[in-house]
Computed example of a mutant assay.
Amino acid sequence: MKNLRSFLAGRKFALAYFALVTFAFTQVSAETILFKNGEKTYGTVIDQSTDTVTILKETKRQAIPKSQILKIIFKDIKDEAEIAKLFETEKKKLNKDGKKPEKEEQLDTLLLEQMIKENSYKTVQKRLALIEKYIDEQDSSWEEYISENRNPWEPVWKSAILPGWGLSTMKHENYARTYQVLIGLSIIVAIGGSQAATEQHNKAENRLGKILIEDPVTYAQIQGSGITGASFVVTKMQSDSISEYNSAKSKENQYETYSRTGLYLGVGLYLAQLAQSYFLGKKWATHNIIQTPSGESVKEGFNFKSNYLPIAAGAGSSLWEYRTDLNYVSTF
């Protein structure tokens, strides 16, 4: 866990420092790299190996073989006359094999290593400043978020009131939106299924009422009319009525199943997001823990600690004391 106390105490200084370093870095001239073939280039040296030197040129990395390099001058030289003079001076140092004396090579390597350290430091500071600027633009409340006092039950009661709210509080937006969408769909299925089941129930009841009251009268009239095949017609009408009733009852049961499934799923998801809010909330709340310079973990506010400590030791005996400390820790 990072030391929030130190972080918050120095943030204003860090902001000013990063801004200054960023400005300074943009003003630092690139190194001038002279090649043995008489050409030159400009770039920021950021790394080296046994055989190559890596430079940063227009935000792109470029590896240059050391065997091609005549001299790296740690400043941006634009004066052609000065460059020509440097070429002549450095070429005189080369032997017949096109190499410098060993001591000269060692000195160049040491100077290069020092420049790499300085450039790397500046690059890191610039990137830190850009990262902080990006975070500020994306979420201006990030400082308050990482430094506020936290209760592990806060995400739970928020999620109990509004599903996903507690997860969103902990910056788990994807989880929050997923639960909200799924629980919302489950509620729609539960309510819609219940309404459809009620409609089918009413339809079945109406059909049953006709079968028991209205249809017998109709059947009697048809059979009493003396029409040929009246019995077949009545039988067919009875079959259709019963089939329509059974169909309505079947759909009623089906929609009730959908409604119960949606309800159970919604309740399950609701309880699941409560459980997830609790377990993630325990980790989220540990941001309240602060580390002292000695590495001891404490919390903001009053901290009570008691220990038995040895104060002296003799031949076969020792003395102990009971020490109690009460400290108040603040992040400011």
Rank of each mutant, 00 (worst) to 15 (best):
I77R: 03
E90T: 09
L4W: 14
A313D: 04
T324N: 04
I187T: 15
N3A: 04
Q200W: 08
E214C: 02
I161M: 08
A275G: 12
I191V: 15
G192S: 13
A275E: 06
I227M: 10
I161S: 02
Q276V: 13
A313I: 06
R127V: 06
Q238H: 13
E105A: 14
D76N: 12
W320L: 14
P155H: 01
A272W: 04
K36F: 02
K117V: 01
V124A: 13
L56I: 00
A81F: 02
V189C: 04
T109S: 08
Q200I: 06
M170C: 04
A160K: 00
L15C: 08
E300G: 11
A197N: 01
E300S: 14
E300T: 11
L111K: 14
S186M: 02
L271G: 05
K2L: 12
E300R: 14
K103D: 11
K57M: 04
W165V: 03
G209Y: 15
T324E: 01
L208D: 06
I161H: 05
S297F: 11
N253L: 06
A315Y: 09
I289E: 04
A220I: 05
K203S: 10
L326I: 15
I55H: 00
I46C: 13
T235F: 08
I72Y: 00
K282G: 13
Y121W: 04
I72T: 02
K158T: 10
P216L: 03
A9K: 09
I55F: 05
S247P: 11
T235C: 06
A19V: 13
E31F: 00
K158L: 14
I311W: 04
E252K: 10
L4S: 14
F74Y: 02
K92H: 06
R207V: 14
T331C: 13
L208R: 09
K75D: 10
T235A: 13
N288M: 04
L265E: 06
G184L: 00
K251I: 05
A176M: 02
A24D: 12
N3D: 05
V53H: 00
I187G: 02
S294R: 12
G266M: 00
P155L: 08
G193F: 11
S49M: 07
A204F: 02
I213S: 13
K158C: 07
M237Y: 15
T50V: 12
L162N: 05
F23M: 03
A230C: 07
A24Q: 15
D51L: 09
E39S: 14
E31D: 09
A30M: 10
I161V: 15
S49C: 07
L208T: 09
K71N: 08
A129H: 09
T228V: 08
F332D: 11
Q138W: 06
S159V: 11
N288D: 03
K96S: 11
A315G: 12
R61K: 09
F35T: 05
S239C: 02
W320G: 14
S140P: 14
K236G: 13
Q106E: 13
A9T: 10
Q195S: 07
K85G: 09
R150Q: 03
K78C: 02
I146T: 00
L319C: 09
P293K: 03
E214N: 07
E113K: 07
K99E: 10
I213G: 05
R177D: 07
N174F: 12
L208H: 06
E102A: 11
K71D: 04
K12D: 14
